[in-house]
């Protein structure tokens, strides 16, 4: 597979690898994919008092594109409000990393991971808007 330089750079120096405390109420966790399909992404966000995502972490089981897509996703969500982060589309990730056509599903998974993390956070806060929910 021939990959773009940006993708290889993210694979070799992934941003924000790690884990946040799942039980922390300011943390939302998204786990998407399936081991049998060859890719699983776990993406976590930590929302600050101002309603903006102050930290994000990921761990990914998958190919180079999956790792790079999730690395990029954590980089992009930081500093955004939940509504803004929800606007990140897989096509933006695919375009930024110049994903080969057979790897587009990796960017779809990254978008799903962001949405799942946001959903988890909102559920923890009884579906209330992020700004009011933050304590």
């Amino acid at each position: 597979m021939s990959y773009s330089e940006k993708l290889i750079e993210h694979y070799e120096n992934p941003r924000n690898v790690g884990a946040l405390d799942k039980s922390d109420t300011s943390v939302g966790t998204g786990l998407v994919g399936a081991p049998a399909c060859g890719d699983v992404m776990k993406l976590q966000i930590k929302v600050g008092a101002d309603g903006r995502i102050e930290d994000a972490k990921f761990k990914t089981f998958g190919c180079g594109s999956a790792i790079a897509s999730s690395s990029l996703a954590t980089e992009w969500v930081k500093g955004k409000t939940l509504d803004e982060a929800e606007q990140i589309k897989n096509t933006m990730i695919a375009q930024h990393l110049s994903l080969p056509p057979v790897k587009i599903h990796c960017s779809v998974l990254a978008e799903d991971a962001i949405k799942a993390a946001i959903r988890d956070y909102r559920e923890k806060h009884g579906e209330k808007p992020a700004e009011q929910a933050a304590e």
Binding site: P14, V17, V32, G33
Partner: peptide
Amino acid sequence: RSMSPLWEMAQEGIDIKSIQWAEH
């Protein structure tokens, strides 16, 4: 492995087969 969520779960003693995965 240090960046694999599956490795992390295995270390925490979570059975990967017990999770309801969404096959895609």
